[in-house]
């Protein structure tokens, strides 16, 4: 059974000799919710651009649902829906027309396209805005418009390049629910994002790309299991001026009523609570200092940057 996406030895060197991708290979199975992460300039958007025929590759091959992007271009392209990083619709066109015209480019009759556009715009909360010019939409609405446009030809592979950038948390959460639902219905999703908690919450598999190379490609769970320690922030009821001593734990005083506590894989938070109770200190709330994926991401890409600098 072919993969949803199969990239083999993909290389891209721009005219200014910048090598954006260095012989990357990647397989994404059907039905996956896949995170493609990396720092700015790592090569994510170049890879997506090549998959979507917006950037010319230097070498390598790509298959989409078994169809070679060079040899069976139209078949391969018909499987892909793209939500790009930048707004790329005509801001002087009405919302409804943007979605229906996109269906037209895929050869979908206007009547059917109009039905699909209506359904998608309703699902994404844009139906009331269908007659508005795209330039009149808010940032969050524009992002949702691009999702509706990408889905109008019912692609099997949806590529989302930072779909929630600049979107408020409420809309972001509703977009997560929507994306999870279409993934449940069978659409393979590739997500790039700078919100790592988003990737952690949604994606089952992950690849991290840095300096044009894939430095990690595994299951999300496997990657997160590699985290040796987590740092928690504890808010105290009492004000203190000295770090409470809890044997075996790295504790720092952030301010008079806030502690940061590093808990290793073989330790438990209970021991910290027990010791704080013994010292008559009461914890009112607790949270992660950063998402687990974020800590790993910084660790992985940070090490790579250091290695490059030393090499």
């Amino acid at each position: 059974m072919p993969n949803a996406l199969s990239i083999q030895h993909l290389t891209k060197t721009y005219k200014n000799n910048v090598q954006a991708l260095k012989d990357i290979s990647l397989d994404i199975v059907k039905g996956d919710f896949f995170a493609l992460l990396g720092p700015n300039g790592a090569g994510k958007s170049t890879a997506i651009g090549i998959i979507c025929s917006l950037v010319n590759k230097t070498a390598g091959s790509i298959k989409v649902y078994g169809y070679d992007l060079d040899k069976e271009k139209d078949k391969a392209k018909s499987y892909i829906g793209l939500v790009p990083q930048e707004f790329n619709f005509n801001v002087f066109e009405p919302v409804f027309e943007i979605v229906v015209n996109q269906a037209g480019y895929y050869g979908i009759p206007r009547k059917k396209a109009a039905q699909r556009a209506e359904l998608l715009l309703k699902q994404l909360g844009l139906w009331e805005k269908r007659r508005d010019m795209a330039r009149e939409l808010s940032g969050g609405m524009k992002r949702r418009l691009m999702i509706a446009r990408a889905l109008v030809h019912e692609p099997q592979l949806l590529i989302l390049d930072e779909p929630t950038a600049g979107v408020d948390i409420e809309i972001r959460r509703s977009m997560w629910v929507f994306l999870e639902e279409i993934n449940r219905q069978g659409t393979t999703i590739i997500l790039t994002t700078h919100y790592l908690e988003e990737a952690e919450a949604l994606c089952r598999n992950i690849a991290i790309i840095n300096n044009g190379e894939i430095i990690e490609n595994t299951k999300m769970k496997t990657l997160l299991a590699r985290l040796h320690s987590e740092t928690f922030i504890l808010d105290l009821k009492e004000n203190i001026n000295k770090v409470p001593a809890v044997a075996g734990y790295k504790i720092a005083l952030l301010d008079s009523s806030t502690l940061s506590v590093e808990v290793n894989k073989d330790q438990t938070v209970n021991e910290v609570f027990d010791e704080l109770s013994r010292l008559n200190l009461h914890v009112t709330s607790m949270r992660n200092k950063s998402s687990r994926l974020e800590e790993l991401f910084v660790c992985l890409t940070g090490n790579q940057i250091k290695d490059d600098a030393q090499g």
Binding site: C52, S53, L54, K73, D74, K75, K77, S78, I80, L82, P84, E86, N88, F89, N90, V91, N101, Q102, Y105, Y106, G107, R149, H153
Partner: peptide
């Protein structure tokens, strides 16, 4: 305005 990309990504 980059909306030529709407056509370039399609199988047209």
């Amino acid at each position: 305005q980059h909306h030529v990309e709407e056509m370039l990504v399609s199988p047209m």
